[in-house]
Design a protein around this nucleic acid. Sequence first.
DNA 1: AATTGTTATGACCAAGTGGTCATATGAGGT
DNA 2: ACCTCATATGACCACTTGGTCATAACAATT
Lengths: 215, 215
Amino acid sequence: MTQTVLPTFINLPLAKQEKIVAAALAEFADKGYQQASINVMVASSGIAKGSMYQYFKDKKGIFLYIFDFAISLVRRTLVQVKETTQEADFFTRLEKSLLAGVEFIRQHPRIYAIYLKILFDQHVPQRPQLLKAVRQFAAEYFQSLVRQGLERGEIRADLPGPVATFLLDALFDRFLQATCVPFFDVTLGLDQAPPEEIEHRVKELIDLLRQGLAS
Amino acid sequence: MTQTVLPTFINLPLAKQEKIVAAALAEFADKGYQQASINVMVASSGIAKGSMYQYFKDKKGIFLYIFDFAISLVRRTLVQVKETTQEADFFTRLEKSLLAGVEFIRQHPRIYAIYLKILFDQHVPQRPQLLKAVRQFAAEYFQSLVRQGLERGEIRADLPGPVATFLLDALFDRFLQATCVPFFDVTLGLDQAPPEEIEHRVKELIDLLRQGLAS
DNA sequence: AATTGTTATGACCAAGTGGTCATATGAGGT
DNA sequence: ACCTCATATGACCACTTGGTCATAACAATT
């Protein structure tokens, strides 16, 4: 990813860096790229507007830095989940992965909010690359799960791999959206559902995937 | 839905109405609510800015009118699909419904684009109501399909209804997004896929739903 | 032709935008 | 104490925004 942070920012005391990152993250998460206001960012991080432009080349530079920050956090988390569930069977891995996703969003709601804002906004800078980076990462994760599931004979051998990956990706993403976007899910009411209900729904969903719909 | 169209607009010759609606639809679809520019709308529909405010109370009024226009079109289409597939079996109905969705978006891409923009933008006026209107409508559609499938014994009797509905809703919505949002789907490459490939993928997906993943 | 009521118009407004720049501040080295 | 150089600052710029309003154009009725 093209870096547009200036060295001045890197030389800043860490506490100040964090304050600025937090302010920018919150603003982008709330408003999306175009609508996010640099005035708001500088006000809420307590620095002068001019200073912001000593740290970053322009608005795009701030955004890309925040995105890098966010995606590296996602990557680390996902790698960790993958490792700690290595030995479990396919469907247990799915379950644990989904719950880990729910937990990640609970801890970093603004990062997920930024992702959701990028999804359908054509005017985000470098959107194709950013989107591809995220989507590809998720797709590869599911691909590797499916591959292992096939090798171990835990899922049907005649399964069309890409379609299965697509299904998992779709379902997981939607489930996560449902847990954190109000008014989005009218069927299960997952937003504001207590953790034990979410766990129960996860189990039901995975079970449905396992067995299929047919009688 | 609260109407904020002024009578002046209704009295306009139909051709002029359509021109204005088309311009507003295009602008909202491209930019979303906040970022959409009334200046652009009036320029591309060839009327004076002041005139726009003789037709609608304010920006919110324009948007809600466009939304009403859009959702009534969706409703009519969905009702029609439901009726024409009434006699088919559950999985055929799913297949036909999904393909109808793909076709609708092909014919009305801007309407779907507006829906996608509303999804994750907290600052759209009356978002809760608008979102609920759409989501509820979709959920009821799938609920009725599932109910009929159960009655006819085409799907497992022990199926947890809400979860099945959720799964269908998730999968269909994501499939539609994948067909029309570039860079979104890296697994199947559904954007720009020829119709026959899309049909094939639809069949595969429905099959997967039917049989499940387990070996 | 005169009058009345409705519609069309675009210059104008305050507010907010991303971005700039001359100047002020401060720390380190001599 | 003095100089140097990286950093901090906020007034300022051009531009766009949603929205207004006095005026003009027009249509219908008298």
